[in-house]
Design a protein around this nucleic acid. Structure first.
Lengths: 338, 338
DNA sequence: TTGAAAGCGCTAACAA
DNA sequence: TTGTTAGCGCTTTCAA
């Protein structure tokens, strides 16, 4: 029965409805003797009492809902992972996730945000499926918001993003550590933080190992299998023995291209990917060593950040506004140690 | 401002709060003169009035929320597609999706369902990431529910699932139509509707083309890249010229194995996959012809079915209980026409 | 420590 | 056609 109300419980327990409420919610401001608390609880259980979240929210002026806005749930597995992370963290705090998909369309987004508002969401996670800059949506003004996997240019909001620089560094280091010195970087052609910052990481790793940066070894590719496939030619011609690919899809294409040329991975060429897109990386031959994009974590930290906004006075200093999440190295079999 | 209430609007428009409500909601039971309706609407717009969904829900005894239960959002892209479909269809009806991920754990599921109940969801979509049978959850009793991508054994609930038989038929036909006669079927070893029904479809297609069924051509494989990779040997040895793979991952492994043996696709062997897992199928060399699993559609039809349950008297006859969704053929370049 | 009661914002009888 | 008003189920102030 979902029809048991608090007043039913109160009546059955022989207390007032207010007392019942306090007993059940462990209200800090009121001291209820253990005895009555236990009694009320027991009655509630027996009756199968379940609070009505709507009534609760109405009375408190806020629901226990968190809005999750995504720009492409169906497009990639990435959105799913962020949702999963956000959902789990929210749940751990007794909140539920109201998920909304905008397909990147502003019109849809507007009405989506309006709907979330109507449902009195406590705050919203605004996410994008690939790391990029966004214009902060008007509709979000006045609602606690954290940008996940994206950021606004004026830098005035809470942001949780992957640490691309560290990721680029980690990927490159993996090759350097294995003893390789001429490391090619198949970087994406599309302008993005991924492109810029992974390159920075690549250079920092080179620096650290005392390897001179060679512009010719950074080659621009389309960020998918075709890009990697096409690059195989360049890789072979250059004679490098190690390649850091912008992402796993590029690596997948490169595998294909290299195999067709009779080049063996990792015996002839070591390869490192990026993203850790399981369906690819874990199942290539040989399995691909790569650096993971922490989507699940982004979701978790996004919600955590959001929920912390209540507690922390909003003036925190801009340094606390941006959370960088580490990209973990996933070692498999595509790197040969010299 | 999110603080404008209906009574503010009423006051500003010089009408009663009830009139305002009617004017705004286009209530059918009450005839409001166009003039006042317009006036109220205008005032509401000017003030930026937004209804409070919690209050509305409380007053009406039901929210405009639909629960979406998934058993593995992070695991595959499939869940994401179902969510996207469900979300969009829900939205088209003014509903929002409350998404909950159980990771397949019963304990989590129980409290998830309890939470959904507390939020007075109108109904729930209970989904699984791969097509399988489930025990209908106790916690769902009494709530309008539709099972999506899964079904209960006693067949007493609304179900929306992919038409695996038709899918198997479509995949096989694709090869037969191209002129191939000896078609190997790399079927999964794990018991599932996919295994059983795709096989049925395979046989039906064979029948239809007058090709005798050869048991030896149905070979069991692990349903992933390794399975396909290992099967390459069998394929080559058998000398077949066409292979229908249980899924795209198997096909991906088979590509690898075949390439290593110098066998060319589709010149020597034509290959058809299943699932249409874009990241794989669209980017293999050659691109893979496959049959899609209609996850997005499953989501759409799931909520459509759910919303229809109100309108249709629950006694509908069991024949209406099960909705089969077509698996579409996606033609690319891995099949050679003789 | 407990109870009575006033809302939270909206809907829907029931009257007028 | 419109207004009055009694809830929906719960929280929380104020008294007792």
């Amino acid at each position: 029965m979902g029809k048991v109300t608090l007043s039913d419980v109160a009546q059955a327990a022989g207390v007032s409805i207010a007392t019942a409420s306090w007993a059940i919610n462990d209200n800090k401001k009121v001291r209820i003797p253990e005895a009555t608390r236990v009694k009320v609880r027991k009655v509630a259980d027996r009756l199968g009492y379940r609070p009505n979240a709507l009534a609760k929210g109405l009375a408190q002026g806020a629901s226990s809902l968190i809005g999750f806005v995504a720009d492409g749930v169906a497009t990639t597995p990435f959105a799913g992972q962020m949702i999963a992370g956000a959902q789990e963290e929210a749940w751990a705090h007794g909140k539920l996730l109201l998920v909304v998909n905008t397909n990147g369309e502003t019109a849809l987004e507007e009405s989506a945000l309006a709907l979330l508002r109507e449902h009195q969401v406590q705050g919203v996670i605004y996410s994008t499926w690939y790391h990029r800059s966004v214009a902060f949506p008007k509709g979000l003004e006045g609602i606690p918001t954290v940008l996940v996997n994206c950021f606004d240019d004026d830098n005035s909001h809470a942001v949780v993003v992957p640490d691309e620089e560290q990721g680029g560094y980690a990927a490159t280091s993996e090759l350097l550590k294995a003893g390789h010195r001429r490391v090619m970087f198949l970087n994406t052609v599309s302008p993005s933080p991924a492109r810029t910052d992974r390159l920075k990481g690549y250079r920092r790793a080179l620096d650290e190992w005392g390897v001179a940066f060679d512009e010719a070894l950074v080659v621009p590719v389309r960020p998918d299998q075709d890009g990697g496939y096409a690059a195989a030619r360049t890789v072979v011609k250059s004679g490098v023995e190690a390649v850091f690919c912008h992402n796993d899809r590029v690596a997948m294409g490169l595998y294909d291209g290299l195999k067709e040329r009779g080049v063996s991975i990792p015996d002839d060429v070591s390869v490192v990917g990026f993203d850790n897109q399981e369906v690819i990386s874990a199942h290539l031959h040989p399995a691909l060593t790569t650096v993971g994009l922490p989507h699940y974590e982004l979701g978790v930290l996004g919600v955590r950040r959001l929920l912390a906004m209540d507690e922390i006075p909003s003036e925190e200093g801009a340094d606390q506004l941006r959370t960088l999440v580490e990209c973990p190295t996933v070692r498999r079999d595509s790197v040969r140690t010299l």
